[in-house]
Design a protein around this nucleic acid. Structure first.
Lengths: 212, 212
DNA sequence: AATCGGAAAAATTTTGAAATTTCCTTGTGA
DNA sequence: TCACAAGGAAATTTCAAAATTTTTCCGATT
């Protein structure tokens, strides 16, 4: 199997975020090299870039390792995500126009559609990828009018780390979970459209507090 | 001149933060290679790590570039720094013990000593390096008891970017500048020791608002 | 049995050059 | 004159092997 470098990046990122590569696991360029059919240095390059996102730990002379999943770290990641999302949403409510409102509504519509399907399904696995993308898009849209590229970039990274911690710790993804987050996403949407900063802060907190 | 890799990293970081390498400037591994007496790939490695800190921009197939210094970006960096420092200080005031108080007092003492020297000096350059280290240590100590490794790490990165923007935009570092920040640092210290969250938020904002 | 030291093995980093891509210059045609 | 294409130069990425460092394993010593 021969793939281009950007695809190696995407593939590794996906495996990191779905715990196909398990937290704490050593990442040896010389082993992955064989799988991707490229040289060890190319893998090393990709891994160095993934460590910027925070999905991979890098220590000089000691190589790479999938970031560990611990309850402490999940707690920390969650707190940081709440901080960024609350601030991003606040600024978006301040700066966002109708374009933002419509994009947010659209993203929520797509997300809730999937979530309702999942809530009534037996096997979740076929939906998980779709849901994952839709959830990310909803939350990114929420903060998309904050006017701060730095905030958005950091949010993207911390969201990836959050997802990694979630699946890494094998948290309960039963359909009851999806049943409750439907309401939570709705609450975030309502508060955002109403430009109610405090209600939105609360809704974001309530949505994520189970991970604290 | 032959130096070890960690020293290449430190040297480049320093040059990036003092605008010895000017914002927007292209960073060609093949040129820096000669200066450091190592191979181009080693430089590339270091540059990839510096792009994690945010001091360097990296674009695939287009190489590296010193992050641009614009008033928009300085504004963005400043806002983000304020967000992180306010939250870090809030949590430190919540969690910090006497150890934190004493470390903060010590860091402030050292800092204000240098600042008083600078305020009364003609030539600032001999102090600038010392002041820079002391200022960083004061602010890092302020948030050091926040209990969030992620917050601390991100603060370190954003502080470096902040410094880069400051010197890159050749802002006025006259002695009048140092005269006013003496009071600002004092206000931050007083509020922190008094565990007055709102006063500390305000003091941090007032300290940095000139860069917005 | 536990610890320490050292040799062997394994992994990481560095290197220099080849392969690829981008960038810049120049020339052609409208 | 301008747009665009082709060619060459320069820069970036990739590679495989050498050099270095870390880790592992094993036996000697306490």
């Amino acid at each position: 199997m021969r793939v281009e470098t950007p695809e190696i990046f995407d593939d590794l990122q996906r495996k990191l975020m779905t715990a196909e590569l398990r937290p704490g696991e050593k990442l040896k360029p010389s082993e992955l090299q064989g799988f991707y059919g490229c040289s060890a240095n190319t893998v090393r390059d990709v891994l160095l870039r993934l460590s910027k996102v925070g999905l991979v730990e890098f220590e000089m002379q000691r190589g790479f390792r999938v970031r560990a999943a611990t309850s402490e770290r999940r707690h920390d990641v969650t707190r940081f995500r709440i901080l960024l999302e609350q601030e991003g949403a606040r600024l978006s409510m301040l700066n966002g126009g109708v374009g933002w409102e419509s994009r947010l509504t659209a993203a929520h519509h797509k997300l809730s559609h999937i979530e309702k399907q999942i809530a009534g399904a037996d096997d979740l696995s076929p939906y998980l990828g779709l849901w994952s993308d839709a959830e990310l898009e909803f939350h990114e849209t929420l903060i998309s009018s904050c006017g701060s590229p730095i905030l958005r970039e950091n949010y993207g990274d911390i969201y990836a780390q959050f997802r990694q911690q979630m699946v890494g710790l094998e948290r309960d993804f039963g359909s009851s979970y999806f049943h409750s987050i439907i309401d939570e996403h709705q609450a975030v949407l309502d508060a955002a459209l109403a430009r109610d900063v405090e209600a939105c802060r609360t809704a974001i907190y309530d949505h994520l507090k189970r991970n604290l």
